[in-house]
Structures are given as structure tokens and as C-alpha cells.
Design a protein around this nucleic acid. Sequence first.
RNA 1: GCGACCGUAGUCUAGCCUGGUAGGACGCUGGCCUUCCAAGCCAGAGACCCGGGUUCAAAUCCCGGCGGUCGCACCA
Length: 568
Amino acid sequence: MEKDDRDKVLEFAIKHGFVYPAYEIYGGVSGFFDYGPLGCILKNKIENKWREIFCIKEGFFEISSPTIAPEEVFIASGHVENFIDPLVYCNNCKQAYRADHLIEEELKIDTKNLSLDEMEKLLEKICCKKCGGKLSKIIMFNLMFKTYIGPLNSRTGYLRPETAQNIFILFNRLYDFARRKLPFGIVQIGKSYRNEISPRQGLIRLREFTQAELELFINPKERKYSRFKYYENENLYLITNNNQEYKITAREAVDRGIFINEAFAYCIVLTKIFLKQIGIDENNIRFRQHSKEELAHYARDAWDCEIKTKRYGWIEVAGIAYRGDYDLRMHEIHSKKELKAFVTYERPIIIKKEILEPNLTLIGKTFKKKAKQILEILKNEKYVEEFKKKGKVIIELENDTIILDERYVKLKRVEQRIVGEKLIPHVVEPSFGIDRILYCLLDNNLKEIDGRMVLTLKPEIAPITVAVFPLVNKDELNAIALKIYEEFKNNGLYAIYDEKDTIGKRYYKADELGIPFAITVDFDTLKDNSVTIRFRDTKEQIRVKIEDVVKVVENFLKEKRYQKACAL
RNA sequence: GCGACCGUAGUCUAGCCUGGUAGGACGCUGGCCUUCCAAGCCAGAGACCCGGGUUCAAAUCCCGGCGGUCGCACCA
């Protein structure tokens, strides 16, 4: 970590229009940022790359849900209960404590089932640990933004603190869409909101932020995941919750039991691949397992993906959580709707048993309206034994006793084939903070190369793809350059045109903004209709015909030939 | 939320202690120059975080707010 009290990456980002502190002219509000012109493009490109890797390539689909949800959702999910921190502070020295932690520590009383009033009473016995002063009343910190849905007497609503819940709530619809088969995945990219007590560190902790989440629904009984084989040899840098460091392949990690199953390992690997592909240095990526205390209320296991930054060291940009059946189970309980999948066994389970086969014609004719009830009662297995002993079955109805002998029922040996079962799927959830990733991407790619500032973003990720320049500011060159500039824009590429200052200065600025290709119209252009393409990272140039220039740039993007031209 | 430090053009800063409304550099705009890698010339625009107090007079002193950095606490 660089010892510097300023966040140079954030300063760079603000200066060049990637982000702005929000509501600045009204003094600003911490925890909120605007995305500026370049940041907006970059963010979209990051999101699209994420879509490509976590959604399209996997054969998954994306949904987009409201960001406001009624209270019931977060009561069920546990967020209403778990998102509130009771805080007290010392009236004398202002030291702040978590009320529940303080009670547990000082009085050795489990606070889990205590009401606020009960905690207040217990706190009267406790003084400030630091100065012995009197403690304040409990202050509740609710990290969810609360709002109202509708006018007077309206429903309480919350801005969602994660995108995941919307997917769980839609489970039955989505399971249906997935043709009722596990595993399947649903992704969502969208805004989430957390009313952080004190957001710090620029883009790292925001009150409104963009999450990209995959909810992968799997069969909990299946340890294998068929697509795992494609990436099982990817190397991972892992730190387990007992502080063991490993640099091993995903396969080895599964074999050693470090990951709970292949689906989980797969999500870890996809995370690394995604980050590599947008341009994070592989050596700056590691995965750290949560300790038991760190685990969220819903998680059985969780790993943070961390990226090393110059300013803040390792920071968390994604979390891969094993949510088990927690969410679907809770929503089943609270909504009273079944949220299950049907899983067929590899081999059907065959159960041989005896049943009583009713003579429907006779029972119907004899008992008329009571027949239906009788048939229902007959399904109880205890009557099989009774029939075997006595040769008949005696059924007690409300005000009637019915005796069924061998004319009515017959003993029959049957083979029952159970082909599967209903169960709540388990969920593996990779969850990304897009804003943090954007920050890390700038951090990892803002470099000084022999005196030049170069933002070495990959051409496909760089916000602006080409800069078009006349070598010098002369009308005959400008006219051609402007035409080429139009041509790029017409082909859907972000381009800029500049004729000011010297060519060197313009290259310098383009490098700083991460523009991978610079097209220069010079005096040879007037003779042979050719222009130069300059590559940002190497400063090398090639000459191409004007009519080919757009296509050549497009090919550099598509075929990734730039890797030769640009030393990425 | 607490504490410490801090807040001057787009950016970095001088001035604040010892009150008399602001100077520089880079950047920006216009012009000149310039035949391939920023920082050559001329001109121009641009600032004291917000509110209150003290004072004849506040960027400067005092109080509050907002914002920033760091530490504590929090961080699903």
C-alpha cells in the first residue's frame, strides 16, 4: 500500500469525468456519487462483460426488479431483524458500544431473545468501560432506507439492501421458466441501498450502489457441477478462515474439501475469470473465507473476493456466499407458498409393499355418498395389517361403523417407484459490487509508463475507443480527420476528435483517458489516402487506407489482435 | 455516531497566527506557433464550503451545519 493520505485514483476519476461527488453544489452528501461521461460508459462495459460471463455464457437469464419492497419481504429475509444495530454511547466520554455486545460481555447474558426495554434495564447496571460514565438510551441504527408505499396509512417499504431477494420471491415463476430443472441461475444487475453509518473511502462504501448478483439454484444432494470441468485447472489464491494460505487449482480445493461443492468452486473461478477479463491483474486477486463471526445471517459459508489496491490494500469487491436453503425456506414460512423444486433421482427408488385395493364399483354402490370418505381412510397403512389378521377392515365414521370384507377390498402386492422428491434448492450466490470493481479497475490500470500517464484499460473496456487527430491544425487535414471521426461514430464506437495543441500533447491526453487507438491524418494522407493508427501502450503506429480504418479498428477489438499491438 | 485534523478557481496551493475581500502554478477558452509523442508565445474566464455571531470591516477570530482524511464504533 502506498503511504499517501490522498486517494489518487479517486482524484483521477473525478478529474477526468468518471465520477463526481453527488449533490456537490448543496454541500454534497457522503456515500453518493454520480457517474460522469467516461464512468458511465466504463460501468456499462463492466456490466456487459459480467453479463457475458455470468449470464449469457452460462445459459442463464437476467431479470430486473423494483428497488422498493414491502416490509414483509425483509421481515422474511431477516433483514429487518438483522439490519438494526442497537448502539449506546457514554454520556460522559462519548464512547460508543453495541448495546447487545456490551450486555453479553459485562453481564454474560444472552441477548438474542431480549426486547429493547429489557436491554435498557440491563444497561442501567453497566457503566462506561472507559470512564465509568453513565450510558445513553439505546439508539437503533437501521441500515435499510425506510419509506412509505402509497399515501396516508400506507404500507411500510424499504429500499432493497441487496438485489437477491427479488429473485427468491420470484422462484416459482423462474423455476417454471427454467423448465423445472436444477441447476439454473438467474442474475440481476441493479441498485441496492444501505444507509451506512459513516461511508468512507470514496467509491468503496456507498449508500447507493450497483450490485451484480447471480443466484445459482442447485440440488443440495449433488456435490458435482457439470460445467466445473471447463475451469477446474484455474489457479486460485485462497485464505481459509483458519488463516491457511493456498495457491492451488480449483480442482484441488474441491478435493481437499476447502469448498463445499463444485458449484461453489465454479462460482469462485468464474469470479476470477471475470475480473481477469476486464483487466484486473491476476496477482491482485485473492479469495478469503469469512470467519464464523463474519458470516451473514443467511450464509453457511462465504468467501470474499479481494483485489489489491494501491491506496487501501486488499478490498472486497465480491462475495460468494453459500446461502443454502435459508432464503427460500424463510419465504415459504412467511408467504405460506411452497417454493420447492422437484428433483428426480438417478435411479428410482423401488418400494415393495402391500396395499388394500378397493373394489370401487361395489363400494360406490353400497355406500353412495360415504364412498369417497371411506376410500380416503383406507389409504392408511394400518388397515393392511388389520386386514391380514382379521380378513376384514373396520372403519369408524362419525355415526356409522363400516365393515369391509374381501368383497370390498383385496390385498395386493405392489411395487412403488419413487422417481424423485420435492426439496428446497440450495443457493450459491456470487455478488459483485460494480462500483468497487470500477474503482479497482482504474487502480490496477492507471500506470506511469516512461513519464506518461497511461490508463491501460483493455480496448474493449476502455470508455472511448478511438481518438482522431489531424497532425497539425490545418483545414485540409482537419476536414479529413472530421470525416473519419464521423465514420467511427456511425459505426457505434465512442470516438473523440481534437485539433488543439501539438500532436504529442493530444496523444498524451488520449493515453491518460485510456483511449487505445489514435488515428492521425498527416500530409501523406493527402497523397495516398492513408492514415496512421497509433497504439496506446506501445506508441507504435501502423498505416492503413482511410476506407479500411474503421474495419481495422473493429478487428482489433473483435479478434483481440490488439494484444499483439498493445502490450497488455 | 464520537474524537482529532482539515475545507481558497477544474486541480494543487500562498494569504489566516498579527482582520482592511486574494497571488502563483497546472488545467480550461480564444488566437499565434507546430510535418508524430504533453508542459513555446499572447490574451481571457475562473475561487475564499454553507449559515449565524463578534467587528466600522471576516478568507482570517468564535459557534453551528455540511463535506473530506484519519482513529474508535459499524460494515449482511
